[in-house]
Design a protein around this nucleic acid. Structure first.
Lengths: 129, 129
DNA sequence: CCGCATGTTGACGTTAACGTAAACGTTATC
DNA sequence: GATAACGTTTACGTTAACGTCAACATGCGG
């Protein structure tokens, strides 16, 4: 079991983000660390939330959307509407990803063709010389 | 063979973007349509460039990066450095996509678990009543 | 007590990719 | 010749997600 708490710079270092970023997430209501005096103290649960935010970010979700995602993990949430709309967003992401994968495949093929053409052109140029 | 030229609103309608967007791409040097008087006229080649820009956008490339991509299709480009750096970017995108796909899979699994828990909780609540 | 690391709260700055609006010209059509 | 429909330029506005100060407090080893 993860027991220790974290300072803001602990988390910043671990996830390679700035402390400003972490405070920003708090401003936006995504994190609510407790305080020791004025200093922020993060529990393992807070750390998990942060991970969720960053994963959402990788997937192109906005912070608002990540907030929804986090709420889904909260036991006290039986909000079916929220759940369905989130699921819809995830499915949309999924189809976007499929489109993107296709785009990438095509792009690499095309680039290879462009490369071939360039090589041909260079070879022809050589002959002409 | 595609023969006809296009007006700015033709393209805007076809790709579901605004004319402002198309002009913006021109401002940024990604398109250079010829003019008829002051009006812009787009060739099929221009249209293809636009498609490349939008595909790049889907993949998360910046306009600057899309510009590089477009240049790769220009026969007059034997710039190996440019090619290599672009290829590197594409490979990075590819690994990002793989990461994202993984993230999505995990996320959907987790959500299903969250759903199950919620259902359990509701069932338990029902019994207690 | 000094200096340094680490923390805090504002508050303003930044960037990309357009949106929005004003003010105007051109063409077609009724 | 009035009215759309479509085009133009110029210029300021917008949004998200932080960056970048400044100015200050706090704890601690030496």
């Amino acid at each position: 079991m993860t027991r220790a708490d974290y300072s803001i710079s602990d988390l910043a270092a671990e996830f390679d983000i700035t402390t400003r970023t972490i405070r920003f997430y708090e401003e936006k209501g995504l994190l609510q660390p407790r305080r020791s005096g004025s200093s922020r103290i993060y529990t393992p649960a807070d750390r998990t939330k942060l991970k969720l935010i960053l994963r959402g970010k990788r997937l192109g979700f906005s912070l608002d959307e990540s907030r929804s995602i986090i709420e889904m993990y909260d036991p006290a949430h039986g909000n079916t509407d929220q759940y369905n709309s989130l699921l819809a967003k995830i499915r949309e992401k999924r189809s976007q990803l499929e489109q993107q994968l296709h785009d990438i495949e095509v792009m690499m093929l095309e680039l290879r063709e462009a490369e071939d053409k360039a090589l041909e052109a260079m070879a022809a140029g050589g002959k002409r010389k």
